[in-house]
Design a protein around this nucleic acid. Structure first.
Lengths: 194, 194
DNA sequence: CTGTAATTGGACTGTACAGTCTAGTCCACT
DNA sequence: AGTGGACTAGACTGTACAGTCCAATTACAG
């Protein structure tokens, strides 16, 4: 039987995401076609090579890395709490960590892709965060210091050992997100109280 | 010509480390044999399968993850500075990050190995650090709080975005280690001043 | 000097997979 | 109804690699 043609391309990309993030680049085209419910040749109709499919998939996936930061510089605790929550739910999700793992694993084979991902993901987020820190510092709500460095510290505290654990695929009993993020932001506010 | 028999095993393990950490598990046995300056069959004389060689190599490599923490609880700034320096030189070295990347990449194929590595590496280090925090808190040198959480925060600040960057293989102009570690420990001491 | 165990190179098997090709099928549009 | 473009199943090629086998060679211990 024949799949509905118009969304085949998207279905293939979704299948590729699924396959690549769970099995890595060594997942076969045949497997991806099967996941997409499509013939192998159809994959090749849309993407000339495996590499091209991989590339397209990563572009399509980039938004996973982005966490928006909105809020006034007058109430950093509240704004950063909100940010921390979104960070934990987005960037520290199983899906996103699986993707990071795969990008890291293939960084030797696709250095440009890895660098692009790093810049559009973590680095962009750090820039956003740094801008916010700057404003909050100028508003006298945070201790005056290098805003980019402060952003890096918050990034580090939020990721903590959690990302390492998840990258290694190690399980752990669930914790209360609200409590944990609250403690982290408290720690940050202690470090950067005016 | 024939290699000196006694150290062949070690040479093979060293070659495997080199190959696996740069090319990942998909590096071939033939390539490893070549790097070790040994015939392919000799590799199979010492290790029954590729998997067994990989396993032996990771056991042999575990010490990369360990950073000793010594010092009295009376001077946390000094002790943690020393620790931070060693952490940066050891755990944030290219070699160690390359290894982490590979363990993470293969965590699906070798979950036990990944978990063992996580526990003997980051988790053990966190335990050490937590013990130290506990003592320093009881000595009144650090604000009283959950010592394990404090250890996690320091771990996060030290790793920061640096590990992410290195995992993705992205270059950056070198910075002064002493300055950076100093700033991080300052930040931590701000957060945990008594 | 001799026997044994390890090493060597090279041929060989079996499998997995990227990518190609083909002949036929289904669907949309005119 | 007929035409063109996308889809399908499956066969096929070439390559890479894990793991085996073997006959010839080398190192070393007694």
């Amino acid at each position: 039987m024949m799949s509905s043609a118009p969304d085949n391309r998207q279905r293939i990309i979704a299948a590729a995401r699924e396959a690549f993030t769970t099995e890595g680049y060594r997942s076969s085209i045949e497997r991806i076609a099967q996941l997409a419910g499509v013939a192998k040749q159809t994959v090749y109709n849309h993407f000339p090579t495996k590499e091209a499919l991989f590339d397209e998939m990563t572009r399509d996936n980039m938004n996973l890395f982005l966490v928006s930061l909105s809020g006034s510089p007058d109430n950093p605790r509240q704004t950063l709490l909100e940010f921390g929550r979104k960070y934990y739910e987005g960037v520290l999700s199983g899906q996103c960590v699986a993707w990071m793992r795969m990008i890291a694993a293939e960084s030797g084979r696709f250095p440009d892709m890895a660098e692009r991902t790093y810049q559009l993901g973590p680095l962009a987020m750090l820039g956003q965060l740094s801008d916010y820190m700057d404003r909050a510092m100028q508003a006298g709500k945070l201790r005056n210091d290098d805003p980019l460095f402060a952003a890096e510290m918050l990034y580090g505290m939020l990721s903590g050992v959690e990302r390492t654990r998840m990258l290694f695929g190690v399980q752990r009993e669930p914790y209360d997100l609200e409590t944990r993020v609250g403690a982290i932001i408290d720690c940050f506010m202690h470090a950067y109280a005016p």
